[in-house]
């Protein structure tokens, strides 16, 4: 593929585009780790957030509040530089970026999903209670199936935010599209000026995000149509 690109668009640019596309795969991996890891954590936080016991609810609310009001950049600094420095341990940029993005994602998704569950009418809970259903049965059979239609579109939409969010991980040395692109933009090579590199990077990010944004919009319209 590298040779093909060089053949098509010339030597320095072909190499650069190839390296950018190659680096973009790490952007995708990191996004997936954040989304899957954050999603799993968010399931538990959401359940805690709506638990019938107040201390558990408060703990979950605190977690969401803390990490939603913390800039992602600061989480990355803390995980990649702050804590390792403070407690004297080594951490790879991979691990640090994964942890930071997972925490960030879990807090955000938990809030989205709590909202989706809150959007299910209280009458549904009341009917379940009147039928003497257990709490878990109400959640599993009544509330969650209905909440999914409210939560699906914003969840996919947030995946776009994660992909863009991973670009911040370059700051702790994570080798992704952003870091490789910036390196080229700073390199004294003809044809790798910032005004060439950055638009190419923007196009690559766009190619990752746009299909998802489109998919989210489609889901949203479907949910709206079903609501009427």
């Amino acid at each position: 593929m590298k040779e093909l690109l060089i053949e098509l668009i010339g030597a320095p640019l072909g190499t650069i585009v190839f390296q950018l596309i190659f680096a973009a795969q790490y952007t995708v991996y990191l996004s997936l780790i954040a989304f899957v890891g954050g999603g799993i954590a968010a399931v538990f936080i959401t359940l805690a957030r709506i638990a019938p016991y107040k201390p558990i609810r408060s703990a979950a609310t605190g977690y969401i509040w803390l990490f939603q009001s913390t800039p992602l950049l600061m989480l990355l600094f803390l995980c990649g530089l702050g804590f390792p420095h403070l407690f004297q341990f080594q951490i790879s940029p991979w691990t640090a970026a994964s942890v930071a993005l997972t925490i960030f994602t879990s807090a955000y998704l938990a809030e989205v999903w709590r909202g989706a569950i809150g959007a299910v009418e209280t009458g549904q809970w009341e009917a379940g209670n009147a039928l003497n259903l257990r709490y878990v049965v109400m959640l599993r059979r009544i509330v969650i199936p209905q909440a999914i239609k409210f939560g699906l579109a914003p969840t996919i939409g947030f995946l776009v935010q994660i992909i863009k969010g991973t670009s911040l991980a370059y700051i702790i040395g994570f080798q992704d599209l952003m870091l490789v692109g910036k390196r080229w933009a700073n390199a004294p090579v003809d044809g790798s000026e910032p005004f060439v590199i950055f638009p190419i990077m923007a196009v690559l990010y766009f190619c990752l995000c746009y299909p998802l944004a489109l998919f989210a919009r489609q889901l949203e319209q479907k949910a709206l149509a079903r609501g009427q």
């Binding site: 009418e121 009458g123 549904q124 009341e126 009917a127 009147a130 039928l131 003497n132 259903l133 257990r134 049965v137 059979r141 009544i142 199936p145 209905q146």
Partner: peptide, 28 residues
């Protein structure tokens, strides 16, 4: 021991009429 009927019906919209009736029977 107590059955309840609501003003707004509060049927489960994602389940059929039959499934609305059987849910508690199978689950509980």
């Amino acid at each position: 021991l107590v059955g309840m009927v609501f003003q707004q019906f509060n049927l489960f919209p994602h389940l059929s009429a039959l499934e609305n009736c059987t849910l508690a029977l199978t689950e509980e």
